[in-house]
Design a protein around this nucleic acid. Structure first.
Length: 511
DNA sequence: AGTGCAGTTGACTTT
DNA sequence: TAAAGTCAACTGCAC
């Protein structure tokens, strides 16, 4: 091969539709589509074999999609800079094309190294935006409308590629070849674009009908949620495609007046709100990468300084805390690689408040268990549910109350904590109150719910009172806060000026 | 029929 | 996507 190639570097964007780097490269010359399986990336503490298993399934489909366009995917194993160097020496690289990635600290450092190499080798590297995330954002003002504009841009069609007879490596490594330990996840969602399209179609056609009401309980959420999250993480479908599929559905529902359509519409409003949130949280990590490692608000640095009781971390991560609903959620997550948002918040809250564990280690455990692990969303949420952002309300979930609210019959608990099958409904969330609890092969509560929650609450609110907390918090809100504050969530009118201040704090939640 | 009262509901505040 | 507490308004019921 004499002509230098345009390398399209696939990262977490494993699709050919709505892939601008691919389309742009194809207009300019021969393309080499490349995925680099990086053992150092998979050696990071937030990576796991279940994530790789999902990605590998996506790669199989990407390989045939690219082959159908004219050039199969080349898969190489190793260090990105060395691989580019080698390819450049052997074939000549005309340019490097990829999407911007809002990843973890390791991928950020790797991208800096690639950029340095590309500059040195005089190879242009074109990075296109994906998601509604902006690089080097100066202000959050106008962010939401910019998101809308980006999502409304036309979807880029898959290009055809110049065929090439080169003998490129195509073997997709196993998790063992990448040095990953086995991580069984029997009910993991399948990867690949076909699964993504079917999840989207099924959600918009049928499953999303009662999303609004079924999103909170793990009894219903597995079926009622879109289940697109791992696909958005690995890019088998783009956020733009999801948004543009939602809009006509919403318009069609708006034509109908019946009660069913009204309820459907409410569900679609929530779903579309989540699409915004997805990018909103990723933007936080893009703007402030240190939140993967450090408290957003530094006044919390003194809290939870000791590394916590290691037995607590183990019991929590194994679903052996003695709180049935917490344990059921953790075990369900382990088997599915997914759990609904509210239960993720409860799991994190229990680790950070009841067990008073520093969030980094518990956050890493959850990251590995989530097949849909998206660093920007994950670390923003970990800090929010640990109370270390300084700009969000402290939310200490009561595991017994959540159980009674979300799983009143105990069906979910009995599915994932079968050793409790004989406990009567009335005390299924508090088995220690059952007369025969001594016969159970199930641990006593690891901490006392009321005592632990009270201690955490006291510590958090004492710190909030301290000098310096408020000024730092308002700076953080200015940088990261959602600008939706002040827009009423319902049609109801705001009352007095003082009321609108408390309203503002409310809408700054999740901001 | 009107009154007193325990219990409920919802809005709002505090931690 | 918190939970618990306060308070006022309301409800059902006994007398």
């Amino acid at each position: 091969m004499s002509q230098p190639v345009h390398i399209v570097w696939f990262k977490r964007d494993l699709r050919v539709v709505d892939h601008r780097p691919l389309a742009m490269a194809a207009e300019r010359g021969p393309v080499l589509p490349l995925y680099i399986a990086e053992p150092d990336l998979w050696a990071q503490p937030d990576a796991s074999a279940r994530q790789w298993a999902f990605a590998a399934e996506c790669l199989v489909e990407l390989q045939s999609a690219l082959a159908a366009l004219g050039h199969p995917l080349c898969v190489m194993v190793g260090n990105a800079v060395s691989i580019f160097e080698q390819l450049h020496k052997r074939h000549g690289i005309a340019a490097l094309w990829s999407h911007q990635e809002t990843g973890n600290g390791w991928t950020y450092a790797r991208d800096l190294a690639v950029a340095a190499w590309a500059k040195e080798a005089c190879v242009p590297w074109h990075e296109e935006r994906q998601f509604g995330v902006a690089r080097r954002l100066r202000s959050r003002d106008g962010w939401a409308s910019a998101w809308d504009r980006r999502m409304a841009e036309p979807i880029t069609a898959a290009p055809s590629l110049q065929p090439d007879s080169g003998d490129w490596p195509r073997h997709i490594p196993s998790h063992e070849e990448l040095g990953l330990v086995t991580d069984p996840c029997p009910y993991r969602q399948p990867g690949g674009r076909l699964a993504a399209l079917s999840a989207l179609a099924g959600f918009l056609k049928e499953r999303g009908r009662n999303y609004r009401f079924e999103v909170s309980s793990p009894v219903t959420a597995f079926g009622a949620c879109s289940r697109l999250s791992p696909h958005l993480t690995w890019g088998t479908i783009s956020m733009r495609e999801v948004a543009q599929a939602s809009w006509p559905r919403m318009r069609a529902l708006s034509q109908l007046r019946d009660a069913d359509s009204r309820s459907w519409r409410a569900s679609m409003v929530s779903f579309m709100g989540r699409q915004h949130w997805h990018c909103h949280f990723m933007q936080k990590l893009e703007d402030e990468p240190r939140i993967e490692f450090e408290n957003l608000h530094r006044a919390y640095d003194g809290l939870r300084t000791e590394s916590g009781d290691p037995r607590h971390l183990i019991a929590w991560s194994e679903g052996q805390t003695g709180y049935p609903f917490v344990d059921a959620c953790m075990r369900a997550l382990n088997q599915h690689g997914w759990i609904n948002f509210r239960m993720r918040a409860m799991l994190m809250s229990f680790a950070s408040y009841h067990l008073w564990l520093p969030w980094r280690e518990s956050g890493l455990h959850l990251a590995r268990k989530f097949v849909d692990y998206e660093p920007g969303i994950h670390w923003s949420q970990v800090q929010m549910q640990s109370g270390t952002t300084g700009i969000n309300t402290i939310r200490i979930y009561n595991p017994v109350k959540q159980g009674l609210d979300q799983d009143p019959t105990g069906a979910f608990v009995r599915t994932y904590v079968p050793e409790l099958h004989a406990v009567p409904d009335a005390v299924i969330h508090e088995p220690w109150r059952w007369q025969e609890s001594a016969t159970l092969n199930y641990p006593a509560p690891i901490v006392d719910n009321a005592t632990a929650a009270k201690a955490a609450k006291d510590a958090m609110f004492a710190l909030r009172q301290s000098a310096g907390h408020r000024t730092a918090a308002s700076k953080i809100a200015a940088k990261h806060g959602s600008r939706k504050a002040g827009i009423p969530m319902t049609g109801r009118t705001r009352k007095t000026a003082s009321k609108s201040i408390s309203g503002k704090q409310l809408t700054l939640d999740f901001s």
